[in-house]
C-alpha cells in the first residue's frame, strides 16, 4: 500500500465488501436467500411438531427438538442454494439457439473458501449439538439405572412379547407406569427385529442370543404404538402391538390383574 496521495488507491477489504453488497445481482440473491431461509425456518418449526406423534418421553422430546434445530442449521444452506436457483431461473434465456456467452468466471478462491468455511462451521454445529444430545441421553440413562423398571422385550416372528421379571408378569402389551425410568432388555427368538415404541422415541434392534439395552422415562399418559422397524419376513407389517403409559395405581392394578405382584 502506497501513501495517501496515490490516485490509484486500492480499495480496502471493507470498501470492497460494501461495494460488493451494493451490486444489483448480489442484492437480488441476498433477498431470495433471506426469503428461502425464512421459509425453511418456518417449515422446520412447524413440520416436525405437526406430524410427529405425541411426545411421551424425555427421549422423544429431545428428538423432536433436534429435528427442529437441525432444520434451522440447514436453513441458510437451503437459502443460498435456492437463491441462485431462483435468480438464474428469472434470467433464463429463451429461444432455440444457445444463449450468448456469460462472464468467464473460472474460480473465486475467496468464494470457495468462505463457502467451505461456512459449510464446515454449520456441519460442526450440527455434529457438536448431536454429540451433546447423545451424551446427555447416555448420562441420564446411567443416573436413572438403579431405580428403573426392567422390561424384557422378545421379538418373535411376528409377535412381540414383554416380560416384567421384577413383577412376575408376561404380556403381549407394553404397559408402563408414568415418570419411572424404564430399561428395555431386547432380544430376539429368531431373526433380527427392531423394537420401536413410537411415542417413546426409542428404537433398538432385537438380535438372537444378544441383549440390546434401551432406556427412557415415560412422561405423559397415553397409548404407545409398538412396531417392528426391521424387515423380518412374511408378517413384518403385522408385528405391532400397543401399550399404555399409566398412572402408578392403574399400573399396579394391571399387574395384579395379570397375576403378578406389584413392586
Amino acid at each position: 500500500m502506497s501513501d495517501h496521495n496515490d490516485v490509484h488507491l486500492e480499495p480496502t477489504p471493507g470498501e470492497r465488501f460494501s461495494k460488493f453488497l451494493k451490486r444489483g445481482d448480489i442484492r437480488e440473491t441476498l433477498a431470495w436467500a433471506a426469503f428461502y431461509t425464512a421459509v425453511f425456518v418456518v417449515l422446520g418449526a412447524y413440520f416436525y411438531p405437526k406430524w410427529m406423534p405425541t411426545v411421551m418421553s424425555t427421549d422423544m422430546k429431545a428428538i423432536e427438538r433436534l429435528m427442529v434445530v437441525f432444520t434451522f442449521i440447514s436453513a441458510p444452506v437451503c437459502g443460498f442454494v435456492m437463491s441462485i436457483f431462483t435468480q438464474t431461473l428469472r434470467h433464463r434465456h429463451k429461444g432455440d439457439t444457445p444463449p450468448p456467452d456469460g462472464p468467464m468466471i473460472r474460480n473465486n478462491r475467496l468464494g470457495v473458501a468462505v463457502f467451505s468455511g461456512v459449510a464446515s462451521l454449520l456441519t460442526l454445529t450440527a455434529v457438536i449439538y448431536g454429540l451433546i444430545e447423545l451424551n446427555s441421553s447416555a448420562e441420564a440413562a446411567t443416573k436413572d439405572a438403579p431405580n428403573a423398571l426392567v422390561v424384557e422385550v422378545t421379538g418373535n416372528q411376528w409377535v412381540w412379547s414383554f416380560n416384567y421379571p421384577s413383577l412376575g408378569v408376561e404380556s403381549n402389551m407394553l404397559n408402563l407406569p408414568i415418570d419411572r425410568p424404564v430399561i428395555f432388555r431386547i432380544t430376539s427368538a429368531d431373526v433380527n427385529h427392531s423394537f420401536w415404541p413410537v411415542q417413546l422415541g426409542v428404537k433398538a434392534d432385537a438380535n438372537h442370543l444378544a441383549t440390546t439395552l434401551a432406556q427412557t422415562t415415560p412422561t405423559k399418559l397415553g397409548t404407545i404404538d409398538v412396531k417392528c422397524a426391521e424387515l423380518c419376513g412374511l408378517y413384518h407389517a403385522y408385528m405391532e402391538t400397543s401399550g399404555e403409559v399409566m398412572t402408578v395405581s392403574d399400573f399396579n392394578n394391571w399387574v395384579t390383574a395379570q397375576g403378578g405382584h406389584s413392586a
Partner: peptide, 15 residues
C-alpha cells in the same frame, strides 16, 4: 434358520 422358513414363511400355510 429358527425353523421359521418353508411352510412358516410361505403365505397361506401356517398363516
Amino acid at each position: 434358520y429358527a425353523n421359521f422358513g418353508a411352510a412358516m414363511g410361505a403365505y397361506g400355510y401356517m398363516s
